[in-house]
Amino acid sequence: MSDNSELIVPQTSVPAELVPTPVSLVPHLREVAILLDIDGTLLDLATTPREVWVPPGLSETLNILMQRTSGALALVSGRSLNDIDLIFAPEMFPAVGGHGAEMRLAGGSEADAIKAPPLDKELKRRLAAIAKLSPGILLEDKGYSLALHYRLAPQAEKAIYEAVSRIRAELPGAPIEVLPGKCVCEIKPAGFTKASGVRELMRHAPFEGRRPFFIGDDVTDESVFAIMPDFAGLSFSVGRRALGVDGHFDAPDDVRAFLSQLAQLGTNSTSSR
């Protein structure tokens, strides 16, 4: 566990004076947009998707940062908006959901844009049958995508991807994309990604014109890492040193500690004025 009383600095290879810290970010909170992946970044991974939980104080931290950035904080996830809301209930944060299929610009509002088509029903049925390959494979229907979780059946990884490859070979015209993740194989329609969702988000107030600060952990976050330079933004990975990022955090504990310090320092600086 990270000690919140100590200054948490993302580990990085860039010059120390360029590394964002809670202290250096506080004066610029009205100029930045804070974008955060959920699973493996804000929240610790769990055995099943339904077992993740929000640690005490995290929602309060996010709400403080929402206020300090004038609303420019958003969750960026492969989960649907509905699923995100269930996890963080009763809070409803701005978010890009479904790997870019859904977007909500303001907390507590309805989705602002749903442009992505849902996964074809027959294709979904065929993909869902893969879960029968082994006990422990968990099927998650996200509407816009289908996820096969094998954390409880790691020996089935090769068989799952081989089965998906066979289905794709039989349907060469199907516009689908396979997203490998941490003990999960996810299949979604092609044409949208977390990066396309973030690009759309950054076109709208209160995010437009701000410098994004994105933290993510998985392969699906790499598309967002890649576009941060287009916005003069910064990206940080969690648990691994992803290619092209400005630095990394060791674990979600460190991300939460960093955000908590940023919120506390921001509050203190406001009250001292």
Rank of each mutant, 00 (worst) to 15 (best):
M1W: 09
S2Y: 04
D3A: 05
D3G: 04
P10R: 02
P10G: 02
L18R: 11
V23H: 11
P27R: 10
E31V: 08
L35I: 13
L35P: 06
D37N: 14
I38L: 13
L43N: 11
L45D: 06
A46M: 08
T47L: 03
R50G: 13
R50T: 07
P56M: 01
G57L: 07
T61F: 02
I64W: 04
L73G: 06
A74V: 12
A74Q: 11
V76S: 03
I84C: 01
E91N: 12
A95S: 15
V96G: 03
H99M: 13
L105C: 13
A106Q: 10
G107C: 10
S109W: 03
A113V: 08
K115G: 15
K115F: 14
A116I: 10
L123Y: 10
A131R: 08
A131D: 09
L138P: 00
K142N: 10
Y144A: 08
H149A: 00
E157S: 12
K158Y: 08
Y161D: 14
V164Y: 02
I176A: 00
L179V: 15
L179M: 12
P180M: 11
V184T: 02
E186P: 02
I187N: 00
A195D: 15
G197A: 12
R203Y: 11
E208W: 13
F213W: 15
F214I: 10
I215L: 15
E222M: 08
I227E: 15
F231W: 15
F236T: 02
S237C: 06
S237A: 11
R240E: 11
L243H: 07
G244E: 14
D254M: 02
D254G: 07
S269A: 15
S272F: 11
